[in-house]
Design a protein around this nucleic acid. Structure first.
Lengths: 207, 207
DNA sequence: TAGATTGTTAATCGATTAACAATC
DNA sequence: TAGATTGTTAATCGATTAACAATC
């Protein structure tokens, strides 16, 4: 597989497949089919087979897919056959909720360090994590080799923090602030803005 | 405009346009162009003009778009020329963070009521909201006429709560649980799962 | 008027689906 | 063997982009 040739929209579906497979495995299932998996996710079986075929042949004609095997392959493809250290910037309500969320480690991510710029918060705890000053942010992240950051700071500070992240050689940012960040092509950004989703749905609601 | 004929992917971009326009207005700008707006968002100017043309003619040749006017039109199209009451189900860490988030009201949404199924939480406060029992959930939501719910309960309870929401005539669900919900076509669902975004980005990271 | 930018059409590009030979 | 399901090809469908007349 040549990574640069696989459409990004396909890559975006792989974590969804992995999530459904993990659920099936927890339910004690061993085998599934593209039809069953698609039914679960609201995706056509043809699309699932096409997506997977970009990376290899993982199924058996007449039988389907071994759930554990396919999940392992997806983890390998997505570079989830390791645990990624992540830094969390921002220890407000949202940052604290993220710090307390227990759902990261099972899916490949570990919060390594938490930062805030508010002097009154430094040294306090956000869940299990001591809150650190952003004074040494670049050096800290470089020393720890952190490539992924969850950014939970106010929109007004998000771009300036982002520039420091870029300087620290961070390569992936999950931005919770409701703005579009400017980054070089070498840095990936994903956004979470709940209001965008709500506003998308109100189009379909009658007043 | 015939709503059913506009592609959903176009609808999904309108809130993004609105967000950028609102930012421009706050910065004191009065006029923008499809090129400037696109530059801000990483979208081509042709796409922005095409998207907007689905709903009418909002610009002036040679000049561009009046920011306030276009924002008002987008609000009207998205049914954001009113405030929507929203219920929040789940008053754990995430629910509490959502309850404390101040960014909803300016963008068209007001949290009206907060619910949890944990007896020890009933009567306590999540930010400015008293936590209510889910015992009377269907009746409560119907009485208040609530059509939109933010669902911040554990994955293990999300589907059963969803069935109660459907029974209560809720039409839009923003689901924070990492699962796919089963709902009839008449109910819209949007999902927020931060781990999916992280796993999408790790594909592009070298180990 | 000259310069700029819209709204729209046609062309291009890319993604999804249908269909089926291969084969478990 | 008969039934089922994959992986893949070709056809279809839909979205994006390029280009430009209209016009502010």
């Amino acid at each position: 597989m040549n990574p640069s040739k696989v459409p990004d929209i396909v890559i975006g579906r792989l974590p969804l497949y992995l999530r459904a497979l993990t659920q099936m495995a927890q339910d004690g299932k061993e085998i599934t089919s593209s039809q069953e998996l698609g039914g679960e996710l609201g995706i056509s079986s043809a699309q699932i087979r096409k997506d997977l075929s970009q990376f290899g042949e993982f199924g058996k004609q007449g039988t389907g897919y071994n759930i554990e095997f396919l999940a392992d392959q997806l983890k390998r493809i997505l570079h989830l056959d390791q645990i990624w250290d992540v830094a969390l910037i921002g220890a407000g309500d949202l940052g604290t909720a993220i710090a307390n969320y227990g759902g990261f480690i099972d899916r490949g991510f570990r919060i390594r360090s938490v930062y805030d710029n508010d002097p009154s918060k430094i040294g306090t705890w956000a869940g299990a994590y001591e809150v650190h000053s952003v004074d040494q942010l670049e050096k800290d992240l470089r020393d720890m080799g952190i490539k992924i950051v969850m950014l939970a700071v106010p929109a007004s500070h998000a771009q300036e923090v982002t520039e420091r992240l870029i300087a620290a050689d961070v390569k992936a940012i999950l931005c919770y602030a409701p703005i579009s960040l400017s980054v070089p092509d070498s840095v990936k950004v994903q956004y979470i803005d709940p209001v965008l989703h709500l506003q998308h749905m109100t189009f379909y609601l009658s007043k």
